[in-house]
Amino acid sequence: MTYSIDTPSRTTLKAEARALRDQRSRAGTPIGQGAALEEIAHRHGYRDWNTAHAALPDRVPTPVQVGQRVKGTYLGQRFTGLVMGVQLLADMQHYTVTVHFDTPVDVVTSSLFSAFRQRVTATVDVHGVSPARTSNGQPHMRVMRA
């Protein structure tokens, strides 16, 4: 089964159910965890919690994993390297990825000077493409499994 970037995980729905329980408790109308899970499943368009649980992934898909060999482009320069860190951001749709390049990359396009980087951290989506763009419209980073 394939999932889109907008597909929540079971973990996300469970967190939403806990937040709903806390909200209702503060409002003076407490509900149980089962009722909260059912309500959250309905909000996401599922018939019930069991249907949502069966249909959803256990975790959100990640573009790369720590320790994985990767390749791609950074500021228009090709690279190969090793993923040193991956962190899911609060929007649940983007990650910060830290890559240690095998060979330092010159991030300056000028012929007058150079600025080499060997370890960089960039924000990417689940497809490994950075939403930030250079002045020519290219993503800052594209990263994929090697």
Rank of each mutant, 00 (worst) to 15 (best):
Y3F: 15
S4Q: 09
S4N: 09
D6L: 15
T7C: 00
S9H: 02
A15I: 07
R18N: 11
A19T: 13
L20E: 11
A27V: 11
T29M: 06
T29Q: 12
P30N: 07
P30E: 07
P30D: 09
I31W: 12
A35S: 14
A36D: 05
E39G: 10
I40Y: 05
I40T: 14
H44F: 12
R47T: 14
D48L: 04
N50R: 11
T51Y: 03
H53E: 13
H53G: 04
A54N: 12
L56R: 02
D58F: 08
V60T: 12
P61F: 06
P63G: 02
Q65F: 09
Q68S: 07
R69D: 09
T73E: 09
G76Y: 04
Q77L: 03
T80D: 07
T80G: 07
L82D: 04
M84I: 05
G85I: 00
L89Y: 04
A90S: 08
M92Q: 15
Y95I: 03
T96N: 09
T96M: 09
V99K: 02
V99D: 05
H100V: 05
T103Y: 11
P104K: 00
V108K: 07
V108S: 07
T109L: 09
S111E: 08
F113C: 08
F113V: 05
R117D: 14
R117L: 13
Q118A: 08
R119S: 14
T121Q: 10
D125K: 00
H127K: 14
G128N: 05
V129L: 08
S130L: 08
S130E: 09
S130P: 10
R133K: 15
T134D: 12
S135C: 09
P139N: 10
R142E: 14
V143R: 08
